Each structure stands twice: as structure tokens, then as C-alpha cells.
Amino acid sequence: MRPLRIYLQKMSGGTSLPAHASIFHILLAGVGAGLAIAIGVYLEEALHFNILMAPLGASCFLAFAIPDSPLAQPRNIVLGHMISSCAALFVLQFLGYGALQIALAVALAVMAMLATRTSHAPAAATPLVIFALQPTWDYLVAPVLPGALVVALTALIFNNLRPSVRYPQYW
């Protein structure tokens, strides 16, 4: 019974909530995220091909709200989405569609990102999008790579306009 009690105690948390973000930080994070998505939408319309996918919204949160996070670095944004997409497309092409295949694609994406030091939590959702759409390998060219690049490059330019931020922390 003691191990169960210890296990359950771990779920009670241990610290207080993080400090409130300043209104200035909140506004800048929102403006940066909105700007990245607006650029993506503009480019989609101008170039007539897909650039945006749902997980990029979560990438924007990391890139603009917590740019110091290892998960928010441009390398992680771009390579995380590319690696996860490759894992999903590989599983979809060679093993087909099914519950186990979807789970395997996400598992492979998580392991590959960890192994390559390109962890990016939103990229772990990319295999779910790929299995929902069942695209071809062209999906890497549009929207994955250009979408991830738009977010990463917008974050690179926008975040460095802020005097208190140095972005990226590493390449």
C-alpha cells in the first residue's frame, strides 16, 4: 500500500503556479504568433500552395511565448516537424493506416526527435495530421518545410527585436 500512496502523492504537484507573465510579454507573444501565421496565410495565397498545418499554431506558442525553451529553438521547430513527418509518412507508406500504425508513427517521431536532439512537442502532433490527411511524400515540401521555416524565421527576426531576448539559444 505504501508504494501506491507514494505514487499518488507524486500526482499532487509540488510547487506553486509559475509567475504571471507581464501584459507586455503577453502582447508581444500574441503579436509574434499572429504575425507568423499571417505571413503563412499571405504566402499560401500568393504562391497557391499549402504552408500552414495545425501543429504550427502550437509551434508559434513556443517560439514567441517561451523563446528560451529548448523546444522553441529554430532547429527544433524545423527539424522536429520534418523528422516527425518522415516517420509518419514512412509508417503510412509501408505499414498502412490503422490504430497501431498511428501510435507507432507518433512513438517513432518522439524517439527520433529525442535521438537527434530536435525535440519539439508540436511536431509530435504532425503524424496525427498526416494520418488524417494521408498525403504523399510531397507533404514534406508543402506544407511541412515552408510552414516550419516561416515560423522559425519570423521568430528569429521578431524575437531579436526585443531587447531582453536572444534568439536562438543555439543552432
Rank of each mutant, 00 (worst) to 15 (best):
R166S: 12
C86M: 13
F49K: 05
H25A: 12
L156K: 01
L104P: 07
L28H: 03
A112Q: 09
K10Q: 15
P122Y: 07
V31R: 04
L89M: 06
D138T: 11
Y7K: 08
A121H: 10
F94I: 00
Y170K: 10
A109V: 08
P70Y: 08
A33K: 03
A19I: 12
L128W: 09
V151L: 03
V31L: 13
P70M: 10
G98N: 04
L35A: 08
S84Y: 06
L35G: 00
Y97K: 05
G96D: 07
A152V: 09
H120N: 12
P67H: 08
W171G: 07
G98R: 00
A107I: 14
A54Y: 10
E45I: 12
R2D: 09
I66Q: 05
H20Q: 14
A33F: 02
A103W: 04
G14C: 11
S59F: 08
S16M: 14
L43S: 07
L161M: 14
A46G: 00
A112M: 15
A125D: 04
Y167V: 03
L52Y: 05
H25F: 07
V150M: 04
V91L: 01
M1C: 07
Q73D: 03
V91Y: 02
M1L: 11
T15I: 15
I23L: 14
F61A: 14
P67C: 06
K10E: 13
G30F: 00
L156S: 08
P67F: 08
W171E: 11
G30P: 06
W137H: 04
F158R: 01
L149V: 11
P163K: 10
G96E: 06
N160K: 01
F158L: 00
T116W: 05
L28G: 03
F94H: 11
I26W: 07
L79A: 12
S119M: 15
V150A: 01
V141D: 04
L4W: 14
I37N: 02
A46K: 13
A33P: 01
M111Q: 10
N50L: 11
F131R: 05
V106I: 15
L153C: 08
F24R: 15
S85I: 05
V31T: 08
H20G: 11
M82V: 15
I23G: 10
A105S: 13
L140W: 01
R2F: 07
R2Q: 13
Y42W: 14
M53H: 13
A123K: 10
H120C: 01
F61C: 11
L100A: 12
Y97D: 15
V106E: 10
N159P: 02
A58S: 13
Q9C: 01
C60I: 03
P143G: 06
P168N: 05
S84F: 04
F61I: 15
N50P: 09
Y167T: 02
Y170T: 09
